[in-house]
Design a protein around this nucleic acid. Sequence first.
DNA 1: ACGTAATCGAGACGGTACGTCGTGTCTTACA
DNA 2: TGTAAGACACGACGTACCGTCTCGATTACGT
Lengths: 193, 193, 193, 193
Amino acid sequence: MNLRPSAGRPRSEESKNAILNATIELLNKSGYPALTIEGIASHAGVSKATIYRWWNHKTLLVMDAFIMLIAPPVELRDEETLRENFLMQLTALSNVFNSTIGRTMLSIISESAPDSEVFKAFYSQYILPRRAAARRILQASILRGEIRSDIDIDVVLDMIYGPIYFRFLIHKRPLETSFLETLIDYTLQAIRR
Amino acid sequence: MNLRPSAGRPRSEESKNAILNATIELLNKSGYPALTIEGIASHAGVSKATIYRWWNHKTLLVMDAFIMLIAPPVELRDEETLRENFLMQLTALSNVFNSTIGRTMLSIISESAPDSEVFKAFYSQYILPRRAAARRILQASILRGEIRSDIDIDVVLDMIYGPIYFRFLIHKRPLETSFLETLIDYTLQAIRR
Amino acid sequence: MNLRPSAGRPRSEESKNAILNATIELLNKSGYPALTIEGIASHAGVSKATIYRWWNHKTLLVMDAFIMLIAPPVELRDEETLRENFLMQLTALSNVFNSTIGRTMLSIISESAPDSEVFKAFYSQYILPRRAAARRILQASILRGEIRSDIDIDVVLDMIYGPIYFRFLIHKRPLETSFLETLIDYTLQAIRR
Amino acid sequence: MNLRPSAGRPRSEESKNAILNATIELLNKSGYPALTIEGIASHAGVSKATIYRWWNHKTLLVMDAFIMLIAPPVELRDEETLRENFLMQLTALSNVFNSTIGRTMLSIISESAPDSEVFKAFYSQYILPRRAAARRILQASILRGEIRSDIDIDVVLDMIYGPIYFRFLIHKRPLETSFLETLIDYTLQAIRR
DNA sequence: ACGTAATCGAGACGGTACGTCGTGTCTTACA
DNA sequence: TGTAAGACACGACGTACCGTCTCGATTACGT
């Protein structure tokens, strides 16, 4: 069962945590362009080789730190209205954007290739779970007859998420709650029965 | 009027063009992470110092190359329907995204600070003119009574542009015309009178 | 005894030798003004950083190459006459001057400050040992009653070495044996009992 | 008569002086390795091209500044004793060595090739006149029967000048008068009748 | 208990690019 | 023609990281 039955010294969890924490700290302090493996190593009290042994690429290291840090997907609940559920999820999303590592992660993804390891990891571990949850509550809403049954759910989801990302990445403006509300209201207006 | 009638040797337009063209070529060939000032200099047959004399930062160099390359803002016309005008502009936008320099530019902007030189240049030279044009035709449409007069134009514009950027940067999926049409239709549905 | 028994990868003796040999070769080929760290690095198949790690200054690198190359101080012997001993030492000195690295070393020393690292190294590692040997045989000669006991040995040594350096550095004329002999004869004439 | 009958603007004496003075000032302030044409030009309020037009090489510029600055050769006089005459000349020489430009000049000469322009200029304009004067008074002394007639004057001159240069360039020690006197006394001892 | 094996820190290594500085040449307009 | 101003191609500087490597030391597991 155990494919590699642990010959030799096991991986140091302590070093692993020190590396991920150092990554986050240095990212917060100086930003992604100034983030170096050497800096992380010395800040974490760890050898460079140890980092290279476990992460092929700096982007994957940031990805792991990002996953460690962010909250799990918001539980969307059927009892809440569609509007409330979206508001909750978009608020969680805007918290991610407000962290340095969240912004960094998105800019890494922006310039990553669709077949790159980091993109695939981010998409499957971050985007898909949240999108699936949102899709579920939209479908429940359709079943309840609140919104039209012929809508293209993917387009609707993009109409909700897209402007949030846009506002952060391109406008670089703070996300007021009123913006979120107007956005959701306009979208629901477009798809209501 | 001319305060200092050119003391010293004038700037070489030839070098300037060679630098911008080399930037674009190398970007297309190997991508932004592999783009080096040294590479640009040698490919353009130009000295590194000449590049540094005119561009403080690599991002600003890419920005200038981007501006040189892209088409001027689409002329939006009153004779066309709102829907046609948006389709035209979004198609132009997707052409930008389909070029390497366009994708690079956006990822640079994604990780730029709001007070950075490159962000301010991009925002004022690229985003604002296009946004102003779109705003004008929305306002004309309001005057003609086709759409509601109480809408928040900024939110509407973000609902149109945002999903496009999102689809490219995060989903990394091609932009089918059907997507554009559905997007516009849903949006118009939300704001029609 | 050994306080830190070698943490980390040990210094490569191979690289060290390659650097010193490349220094000598390039010096012989093109002279000191054309000697660059970059040239040495590429000629030695070594990274620039490796050179800078071990030598703060180009002059110290030349100094080490010089020390590696030159013969150890001539053994002065009591059985020989004073005259023979000096002739031997001055001949060895003129061999140093006839090598490019010897001439280079002297011109480095000429323009070095008295408190500079390279001057102190040269003085203690090259000048002093040879001067001490010469001083010893002069003192032995005094004890044997061949020369006056009240002479200022430092002045006498400068009277012997100084003209050699002068002839090379300023006159730039070859050193004939007859010149050396006349020089020694005149000096002995001045200090004989 | 006038070979170049002043076509065009004449050479600016003002610029020439500014250049030579700037050379000396910068040499005194920061030393020869830090002496740059660009620095001289900006300090003298002069264009780089003007410097390059009149001096092929930085060493020649220093040479001209040196010649402008130093006193003319000491007048050696028959009325004085040989000893007094040498003392006077050696004192003048040690003044040269005490100036930054004097030390710089010597180190330039040390590393110059025998067929280089700067060496030939220095030798003919500085060394030879002083050496000729010293040679004359030695010959006069021979005629008066004070010193031996069979001496090799060139060797004697080197025995007097050499140790001075040596003391400055290699020992880097101050020249006490007592050293000069002992040096002269030993030399005269060697060649007196 | 003792070897085998993987991991760890330290840090040297060959590279590549950085951004700066000085070189010597040039192009302009003015004197 | 000479000059100041200043842009230019070139080349080296000394630094910073890259990703790899070689050490000795450490920590498990299987004999």
